[in-house]
Design a binder for these strands. Sequence first.
DNA 1: AATGAATGAGGCTTCATTCAT
DNA 2: TATGAATGAAGCCTCATTCAT
Lengths: 208, 208, 208, 208
Amino acid sequence: MTERSVKNNIMAPRSEQENENIRNKRTTEIIMVALELFATKGYHSTSISKIAQQAGISKGLMYNYFSSKEDLLKEVVLFSYKKASDTLLEKMQAEIQHKSLKDAIKTVIELFFEMMTENAHIWKLSISLSMQVTDMPDIQTIMSKIFSEAFQRIAFLLNPENPEIVEAEARIIAATLDGIALHYYVIGESYDLDAVKNKLIENLTNKF
Amino acid sequence: MTERSVKNNIMAPRSEQENENIRNKRTTEIIMVALELFATKGYHSTSISKIAQQAGISKGLMYNYFSSKEDLLKEVVLFSYKKASDTLLEKMQAEIQHKSLKDAIKTVIELFFEMMTENAHIWKLSISLSMQVTDMPDIQTIMSKIFSEAFQRIAFLLNPENPEIVEAEARIIAATLDGIALHYYVIGESYDLDAVKNKLIENLTNKF
Amino acid sequence: MTERSVKNNIMAPRSEQENENIRNKRTTEIIMVALELFATKGYHSTSISKIAQQAGISKGLMYNYFSSKEDLLKEVVLFSYKKASDTLLEKMQAEIQHKSLKDAIKTVIELFFEMMTENAHIWKLSISLSMQVTDMPDIQTIMSKIFSEAFQRIAFLLNPENPEIVEAEARIIAATLDGIALHYYVIGESYDLDAVKNKLIENLTNKF
Amino acid sequence: MTERSVKNNIMAPRSEQENENIRNKRTTEIIMVALELFATKGYHSTSISKIAQQAGISKGLMYNYFSSKEDLLKEVVLFSYKKASDTLLEKMQAEIQHKSLKDAIKTVIELFFEMMTENAHIWKLSISLSMQVTDMPDIQTIMSKIFSEAFQRIAFLLNPENPEIVEAEARIIAATLDGIALHYYVIGESYDLDAVKNKLIENLTNKF
DNA sequence: AATGAATGAGGCTTCATTCAT
DNA sequence: TATGAATGAAGCCTCATTCAT
């Protein structure tokens, strides 16, 4: 064991590489903790203190990673969106390749419902935030962009060559999906998710 | 007998009727101010102080009418629901009588969109609240009931004799409507509400 | 039934006699309600509102009888003292006439213990107040007087001709009695009041 | 290597030891200020604000050390008791060793009177609290325990082998002492403490 | 004499943020 | 980089008291 490894937290600064690794890891950790707490307790009812504690770091250090609570929220939203994209959307595109439109629609819906139950935190936070942060223009803008992108993706799925002609249809489908999520999160267990899913698949596969 | 002795109750306390009038007026005033602020700024970002100020009364008086901020919220929710029922739902039922199912559906959708733009506060608050009040069981319960009732009404509209067989369909329609509202409130002006409305009417009237 | 008696609360002012009777009755009522609440909940934790409510009158009317909460407290203290005098002390003097000193002491102690359990409110409030109202000089003065008078009475009982030579002894006896009350009220049921009473009687009758 | 990198722990957080020292110092400071204010002004009439001000810290910091005003009170009571034990009771036991019962009693009484004048705050608060905290069960319980322990100590002093047979006597002595304190604090300077002390010593040394 | 709506000061508490170390 | 003591503003709520009626 070298002198350095024994005392490396006292004697010498960590290498820049080490530091950056730690930073990235920490940043993600904090964001994930915050995501969970924001989604379950709400943004306003979650204190910086609590997040720091749960993330195993000090309150003060939080401000080394995020300049304010609102900034943290922004990062949480972006992270959520990115994560949703990385999982749901990529999965989607992987699955629907070489499929007929009917099968593609079915797959998309199934994936959405899967996400909805498995990544409840992200979904819940997204919907919740979109409504409760009118006084935070940055967040508002981000949410607005996220929704718009979703419309475009669905429109593209329905008609890759002329997405604009199915725009209204795409918006309705997106609305239906988000509306179902909304109701499911509010009503809870007694919402018969499977019945709704099957009916929705039936409706849309009949239609397209 | 002097004027005064004739009216010796002139120095009596206000009559019960007077007091009740004052109370009713104030209660409604406060609820309406609170509704607007909760809907635009969010529940947590709206202080009792702000509501009182906007309502032109003292902070202390708020507690003469509502036992706590949460109690006020509950009353706001109930008031909103009642008002929505009194306008949207009654209107609906009045309009759809003697109409074919197609026409009835068209009417319902049009009324919903009308409400959505005209009573934006109420809608926005409802959706917003339903997501941000995990830690207020009372409100959660009320919201849950409100949504469930909406499903039933739609199901009844579609098939008055066997509402349960169209339950899933009703939930989808309700979800679509609430989802549209959600997107509209988040995205704002650039959301082409008319296009969506027309497409939705087309879809549903074709179907039923 | 006369016209007047039917409408006497509307048509004509009550006679002065009636008014004074009502005033006296009300005053006593309020004081007694306040006494109970102050003794059980404490002075600071008892609101004027609560007292008014319990007494069946309006908050505003309270200020027709007492100029402030502190004034009410003062009256409560004086009333308590007067009531204690009227019962305990008069009873005492009645009973100890023609008795030997031993018997008189026994009687006094028995009466004190009786009062302590039966008029717990008054005792408790007195002790409590004497300690918690350092910032209310009026009350402080009254309490001080009450205690001093008690010393004198006991001294006079022990030696009617030269009460000053048994002053210290009288203070010790008074302290013992009040100390027992203090402990009893704090410790509650598990304090063996009878054992202490009998021992005290034994001690004092042996001594004098 | 620069000066800074050599001492790169100069920017490290305070050591745990330092922090603990700060916390201990502050905690004690606050408790002592609170003790004085509670004892002189009463618990309810002493605001957190006032305590913070007197302790020279911000209101908010109070809650870094005590979770609520009632929690602070509890700590004050426990601290007072501990301090009383550490001084009065230890002193007592040190002094009465190898003494006759008569001398021991004399010493105990003298120590009690000394405490009463020198640590007036603690005594006053104890008596005061015991009466005014009916609605704080925790404090009630603590006070109850403290009094009970005092009885046992006195009983043990009087008859180490069979303390239970002198229990009533011990309670009477304890009551007398606390009663004297009560009267002294209420009546103030005009209470002739020395005369009472001497008489009490005379009484008890004659008796045992 | 009587009511209760209304006020406003003050109390307890939380929490984002800063800063010395 | 890291800590947590410290701040101060703001929030919710209570309550003695006043006042129009």
